[in-house]
């Protein structure tokens, strides 16, 4: 039985209106890759922000509890929260171009990420940066590090973001649509990179995506988010083989080439009958992944 890394039950929103996430219950086990799939506007990114308690900077709020490694993050003072960000929980954002400060050289960005949690001096910084770059399949020579974000490709930029995210070896990596800005080949490479990192570093990954097909090759478990509610959560195979929720079925039905068999079409009256169950989070099932874990 793997240790529970993160367990949350939150409601989050912006301003005074309807919450964008309603009573979401979600858990991440150590070392697993959990894919959070939903359409645009379903609240996926808000969940990532809420989790890091950064949603306030976008004018939002979050309530509930977020227990990470046995500590409730909601009760932490901001100073402790800051210490956690980047060191225990890494974040990779959707657009590598806008996520890198255009005015800083790559080396300076990495260094800033390092200095947020460690002291500046000497060899650990060089070693760890080099290692992170290597893990992200990036060259770590000076000529590359001296470049500005505008001087590297989008794929490379995404790898730099990943390298920065794993610099402090966090136990959880949140990837918010990390591949949606990339071309197909680069997408595949980045997906593979996440799988590799997960394997090599045993870092748990919360992989947020709208693309069910691509995550199905990567994730151990998948959670489906629809209009702010978690409608389904379970091992990939289980979700694909026997989707419980009509929305999941529709998602799977839309896939160009389903990985297993053709899901049955959902009868219209079934759909209506199941509407009532929407909004109730599925019970969390233990991971059934095959990857190495403690």
């Amino acid at each position: 039985m793997a240790a529970r890394l993160l367990e949350m039950r939150i409601t989050a929103g912006y301003g005074k209106g309807q919450p964008v996430l309603e009573d979401i219950t979600l858990a991440v086990e150590s070392g697993e890759i959990l894919a959070l799939v939903g359409q645009s506007g379903s609240g996926k990114s808000s969940l990532a922000m809420a989790l890091l308690r950064l949603i306030g900077y976008r004018g939002g709020w979050v309530r509930g509890s977020i227990v990470f490694e046995g500590t409730d993050l909601m009760g932490l003072p901001e100073r402790r929260m800051r210490e956690l960000r980047g060191s225990r929980i890494g974040l990779v954002l959707q657009s590598p171009v806008s996520s890198l400060n255009p005015c800083l050289r790559l080396r300076d960005q990495l260094r800033e990420a390092w200095l947020a949690h460690r002291s500046a001096d000497g060899s650990p910084w060089r070693q760890e940066t080099g290692r992170a770059m290597e893990l992200a399949c990036l060259p770590s020579e000076e000529t590359f590090l001296r470049r500005y974000p505008s001087e590297i490709s989008v794929g490379q930029a995404q790898r730099v973001l990943i390298a920065m995210a794993i610099l402090h070896r966090p136990s959880l990596l949140i990837a918010d649509e990390p591949t949606s800005a990339l071309d197909v080949i680069t997408q595949a490479e980045i997906l593979k990179l996440f799988a590799d990192l997960n394997r090599k570093l045993s870092t748990a990954v919360l992989f947020i995506s709208h693309d069910l097909l691509s995550v199905s090759t990567l994730a151990h478990r998948v959670a489906i988010l629809e209009r702010g509610s978690l409608v389904e959560c379970g091992p990939v195979r289980q979700v694909f083989d026997s989707p419980a929720h009509p929305f999941t079925r529709r998602l799977i039905g839309c896939l160009p080439q389903p990985p297993s068999r053709e899901p049955e079409a959902v009868p219209a009256n079934d759909l209506r009958a199941l509407v009532n169950s929407v909004g109730q989070g599925e019970p969390v099932t233990p991971p059934v992944h095959a990857g190495e874990s403690q």
């Binding site: 900077y57 976008r58 980047g86 974040l91 954002l93 996520s99 400060n101 800033e112 947020a116 920065m164």
Partner: peptide, 18 residues
């Protein structure tokens, strides 16, 4: 203030004067 790279910097644990 709302740019991605500042959000990311915050997510990396950078805050305050720095």
């Amino acid at each position: 203030r709302n740019s991605d790279f500042l959000l990311l910097a915050r997510a990396q644990g950078v805050a305050g004067w720095r």
